[in-house]
Design a protein around this nucleic acid. Structure first.
Lengths: 331, 331
DNA sequence: TTGTAAGCGTTATCAA
DNA sequence: TTGATAACGCTTACAA
């Protein structure tokens, strides 16, 4: 691999002059600079990042960590991060969980955006520091070096459930995600609060526990059908599970929304074409913001005030009018 | 950041002993080793990757490059790569186009899997070398240092079109992807060949050019409708465009498959829930294989024989029986 | 079994 | 305007 030395030799100057030329320092003659730059291009020289980072510790690279490959909104988030980072001359590295700790601690990156429940709190608390700020998505950890960006799930979920009730639906099931995640808890809390304030009873056996994947939604709905406990409306903690549930309902001969209404959360790529009523989370935007805060924090303007962003209910055709459901019960 | 020196000082030994202990060299006393390892854990020491890679050039990291954030099968591919890499003690770095060249040339990675049409041939030819093998997905470049893994689109597309014809469909439109991509060319070629061998005429005005995104499929179908050129069957070069086309058809009051049949390609997450007839490409598997070949090539067992992998037609409900379409024409 | 020292590619300091 | 040199954190001969 061609290094700075080779360029120096070819140009007949010292390595420091080459380095200065490349980094836009002004202590180098115009002619020399041009000559050097031309040579670099010609010999296709690229600075070795390891040497660079070793010397000045400054990586100008941010890390994004994720690992649940089923949740395809990641691509939008990455897109947002990527845009902001490259506008600010930061490189972006993306890592699945397995390699992530290494890259966080290796000095190759100057900060990290974390969206992965598998990353343990202890680890993050240990890694985060003055010189290695972290931005958390969908999660909160108290630390002077971590900023949280969390979607306010409560408000839109409350609006959604209230709207469903107003449309005449009465008997609910809730299909939850992983129980340890903050977003699932919040979505469920909103659901319960609205039912309470409408004096609608909800018994624990109508809570079904899933993992945000289609299959778990499918299984949950299968169980409802087999045990003859199909409700008026299945409120799901995300779209994937809602899609899974719809599939099972269809197989079981139930019509959505005539027999059962279904709601999701996320507005994933599937939601719009399937007509799923759901909540839209601005993924590109939160990726962009995450990168923005991270880079500011790296630059020393530490801001770790937790941030809530808002999301919007999208009414689509998987929720109709409860009346039709009532008719079903009558017959 | 705690470095090897700090550990050495704390353990009362030299840095080389620490290094030897960490790298499992046998010239270290049992007691010393244990003591050192314990200290590393305690002080949460992690080797600095820059120093390491600078010294021995050997990064044990592979790079995956992509950038079209709309194509969500990437996640499956990444999953496959990630699994093979971590089973073989390689780290995985993922990069959008913008940062990719830097990471290829930085010495931080020892090889790259490329799935991004925006990466120019010239660049790849320049980067690839004995010490930096590349695996290309969906693309072929002649080079002693690059291996291609390409999906055989021809056979399944031919099978698909033949099947559609046998079901009674006669008038076709083709909705193509980016014209410069090999996979689009091959899909179109198969389509044409089968039409030819069935003596079905196809006029150029029924070729619509898209970019693999939903919107372009939507626009194309809108145009068909507005110009009253709706065919019996729209064969699309990928699923996204097929979904877009279906949306436009629906809005225009056309029923799939009763009025028009639609086929896709990719078996994306959308295909199954929407009942789209398509071709399934084993994404996880090809990611896995790409990682496998790349790592073998890095290890010096260079194999650059281009590889074709096969894909399978999945018949679903967006293709019915051409008879119903014929009825429509009669009325 | 352990320590010393050189060197990987870069940049910063200081001297020429 | 340029060049020599030290330093970054690590590994590896080689010496002790």
């Amino acid at each position: 691999m061609v290094g700075i030395k080779d360029i120096a030799k070819a140009a007949g100057v010292s390595v420091s002059t080459v380095s200065n030329a490349l980094n836009g320092k002004k202590n180098v003659g115009e002619k020399t600079r041009e000559h050097i730059l031309a040579l670099c291009k010609e010999m296709s020289y690229y600075p070795n990042a390891a040497g660079k980072s070793l010397k000045n510790g400054d990586a100008n690279t941010i890390l994004f960590n994720f690992s649940d490959f089923d949740r395809n909104f990641y691509l939008d988030i990455i897109n947002g991060i990527s845009d902001y980072a490259s506008d600010n001359d930061f490189d972006l590295m993306i890592c699945p969980k397995k390699s992530c700790e290494k890259f966080m601690r290796s000095g190759l990156t100057s900060g990290c955006i974390v969206l992965d429940m598998q990353m343990k709190n202890d680890l993050l608390l240990d890694v985060a520091s003055e010189n290695y700020p972290i931005v958390l998505l969908d999660r909160y950890i108290e630390s002077p070096y971590m900023k949280s960006i969390v979607v306010n799930s409560y408000t839109p979920m409350a609006e959604l459930v209230q709207g469903v009730i107003e449309r005449g639906y009465k008997r609910f099931a809730f299909l939850g995600g992983p129980e340890n995640t903050d977003d699932n808890k919040e979505r469920y809390r909103a659901f319960m609060d609205v039912l309470d304030s409408n004096h609608i009873n909800f018994s624990g056996k109508n809570y079904y526990s899933g993992d945000y994947r289609q299959k778990s939604g499918y299984m949950a709905a299968k169980i409802m059908i087999l045990s003859d406990e199909v409700p008026d409306c299945i409120v799901c903690a995300n779209d994937n599970m809602a899609i899974g549930a719809m599939k099972a309902l269809k197989e079981g001969g139930y019509k959505v929304p005539d027999d059962v209404a279904v709601t999701g959360f996320d507005n994933s790529v599937l939601a719009e074409p399937m007509g799923l009523t759901t909540v839209d989370i601005p993924d590109y935007e939160r990726g962009y913001m995450a990168a923005q805060y991270l880079i500011e924090n790296i630059r020393g303007n530490m801001d770790t005030e937790p941030l809530k962003i808002s999301a919007k209910v999208l009414w689509r055709k998987t929720v109709g009018h409860g009346d039709s459901v009532k008719n079903r019960h009558k017959r």
